[in-house]
């Protein structure tokens, strides 16, 4: 791993629980950044609040760990004021889609040149497992003790509808694919959104019948279905399983973007 010198070694060990999926996403992201050949001094990581948002603190670049939900608004200021900086945002499902939902749709609409990696564990990890906007219908959390009665957000559909140039979804099982898509996102001017479904054994898995860490990773593997395959099934009039997780690059386009390096 050539990118290990991007890690802030003097801050280790990290706060993540054993078996947490966030570390995988950090690795994939740094690997993608490394492929870009970017220098540390021209790269900035920004985040909000949550387990996922702690990631920038473990990376050796300039980084801004902001307030809950607001990372994209801070990142917008950084990127607009200095488009020469490469700005990458780490966020969580609660951070991005609940308290930060408005900033999310507007950052997509502006198509500002950021790469946003959302670690979607379908739960509020940091605060002990409350329901989030992506908690699946019927899933258990500390605030949905009888099963969530709210329909969940599809973050990628949201980003696509709001105007992001690049939208992709993978999981912590799909390390190579996730890395490749983050790399694509870094290359594409405009707003790139990569959703990474991750296991949170501590606050999601153990309440939702994933007794072992690997049970949920296995679930990602068996339930993931490539977007191309989903389209083929649809075209052939065949059913797509209701619990399928649509994977792959979902949108790639060239809308006018803001804050692109001059």
């Amino acid at each position: 791993m050539t990118y290990s010198d991007w890690l802030r070694a003097d801050r280790l060990p990290h706060i993540y629980c054993a078996g947490c999926g966030n570390g995988t996403v950090i690795n994939c992201t740094l690997s993608a950044v490394d492929r870009m050949g970017w220098k540390k001094e021209e790269t900035v990581f920004v985040s909000g609040i949550g387990c996922s948002s702690r990631a920038p603190g473990y990376i050796m670049t300039d980084s801004l760990h902001t307030t809950h939900g607001r990372a994209l608004a801070f990142a917008t200021g950084i990127k607009m004021a200095n488009p020469d900086l490469h700005v990458i945002v780490f966020t969580g499902d609660g951070d991005l889609a609940a308290i930060g939902g408005n900033h999310f749709i507007h950052a997509c609409r502006r198509n500002i040149d950021l790469t946003v990696v959302c670690m979607n564990n379908q739960i509020y990890g940091m605060t002990g497992g409350q329901g989030s906007p992506t908690t699946p219908y019927g899933a258990l959390s500390t605030t949905t003790p009888y099963g969530s009665q709210e329909p969940a957000f599809d973050l990628c559909e949201l980003a696509s509808a709001a105007g992001a140039n690049f939208v992709s979804r993978w999981t912590s099982f799909h390390v190579k694919e996730l890395t490749r898509s983050i790399h694509e996102g870094l290359k594409i001017p405009g707003f790139s959104f990569i959703e990474a479904l991750v296991q949170c054994p501590t606050n999601y898995g153990r309440r939702n019948r994933f007794r072992q860490v690997m049970d949920q990773v296995e679930y990602f593997k068996t339930h993931g279905i490539l977007v191309q395959k989903a389209h083929r099934l649809r075209d052939e009039g065949l059913p797509i399983p209701a619990d399928a997780i649509l994977l792959g690059d979902l949108i790639r386009r060239d809308r006018p973007a803001m804050g692109v390096r001059r």
Partner: peptide, 13 residues
């Protein structure tokens, strides 16, 4: 909220 956030981000540059 976003206004002041963007200002703080810009200031760090």
């Amino acid at each position: 909220i976003a206004g002041i956030a963007s200002v703080i981000g810009a200031s760090w540059t």
